[in-house]
Simulated assay, not measured.
Amino acid sequence: MVRRFIRFLLCLVGIAVVGGAVFYVITAPNPLRDSHWSGLGEPDVKNGETVFWAGGCVSCHAAPGAQGDAKLVLSGGLALKSPFGTFHIPNVSPDEKAGIGSWTLAQFGNAMKRGVAPNGEHLYPSFPYGSYARMTDKDVNDLFGYLKTLPKSANVAPPHELPFPFNIRLALGGWKFLYFNEQPRVALENPDEKVKRGQYLVEGPGHCGECHTPRDALGGFKPGMWLAGAPNPEGEGRIPDITPGSKTIGSWSEGDIANYLETGFTPDFDSAGGSMTEVQQNIAHLPKSDLEAIASYLKAVPSH
């Protein structure tokens, strides 16, 4: 009897050890090796500026209410409310202590493409690395080079305000296991180079789906609903469907979409409003060819 009990306990211990090992493998951060980032050469700062505006970095990382050149001081401090708690956007200026001035390219690249902080912890997907994972290494390198040219700020954002269990970063490994990948969001049939460029901008640095795609209870994108519209993550209103069958832009031509992204005016001479106002102002910095590429992609995605 005693031997059976001991064998039973050993069996439980074995199951716990195996389960713990599997849990660790699933939830452990998975950064790219430092060697992955070697050999990229000097960054193309001009291209880095284009990536910067495509990604709309100022919308989250500039100080709340900043205008003009002050937007280029990426001091952080914005409080981003969500169903999971309040995220406080960090300083990503070149400041060596408060910002990312002491980071290496590998550390920056792993934050961008793997959601892993320099200390090895998971980053919360309020930072849209789920989209940035699709960026090329060159664009990451160029963006990092451009960020180094911007003004420094000593501002330190407060810690996130998240209730249990969302304050347990290890659980983010499970979220990544369920939702994180580097594959295209939609499979397009024989896309030309223009559409491919638009897909890259929308699905990668532009991270448009982060607001325009509905999410499930765990914060992952609902399958088959890419860009189908979603509740406003900040709580009021709704982010519109921007697929070809939508009431919002379904009747617009590619030229209409490109013009809207450039000027902020719809074909009916209405203007961008709400959070889209700043998004449009950021995207307007892109060359016209990129705006046209985004329009072509939006006309090529499946309708809902």
Rank of each mutant, 00 (worst) to 15 (best):
M1A: 14
V2D: 06
R3Q: 13
R4A: 06
V18Y: 01
V22W: 00
A28V: 01
N30D: 12
R33Q: 11
R33P: 14
D34M: 00
D34F: 05
D34P: 01
E42A: 12
P43T: 11
P43D: 10
V45S: 12
G48W: 05
E49G: 08
W53Y: 15
G56L: 08
G56A: 05
C57T: 13
S59E: 11
Q67P: 03
Q67E: 15
L72E: 09
L74P: 10
G76N: 03
G77T: 09
V92K: 02
G99T: 07
W103Q: 06
G109A: 02
K113C: 03
R114S: 08
R114G: 02
R114Y: 00
G115Y: 00
N119G: 02
E121K: 12
H122Y: 10
S126L: 10
S131I: 01
V140D: 04
F144N: 10
L147M: 15
T149M: 11
P151N: 09
K152T: 15
A154V: 14
A157F: 08
A157P: 06
P159L: 02
E161I: 06
L162A: 03
P165L: 01
F166H: 11
L170R: 09
A171D: 06
G174N: 05
K176A: 11
F177R: 01
E182T: 05
R185N: 10
A187L: 09
L188R: 09
L188C: 12
E189K: 09
Q199K: 11
Y200D: 06
L201K: 05
V202D: 02
P205M: 04
H207C: 13
G209W: 04
G209F: 10
E210F: 10
E210T: 12
E210G: 04
C211F: 03
T213V: 02
T213A: 08
P214C: 00
G219T: 06
G220N: 05
K222Q: 12
P223H: 07
W226I: 07
L227Y: 01
P231E: 10
P233F: 07
P233W: 08
E234P: 03
E236K: 15
R238T: 14
R238H: 13
D241L: 00
P244Q: 13
G245C: 14
K247T: 07
T248C: 03
I249D: 05
I249N: 12
W252I: 10
W252T: 09
D256G: 03
L261W: 13
E262K: 15
D270E: 09
S275R: 13
L291D: 09
L291T: 07
Y297G: 02
P302N: 06
H304P: 10
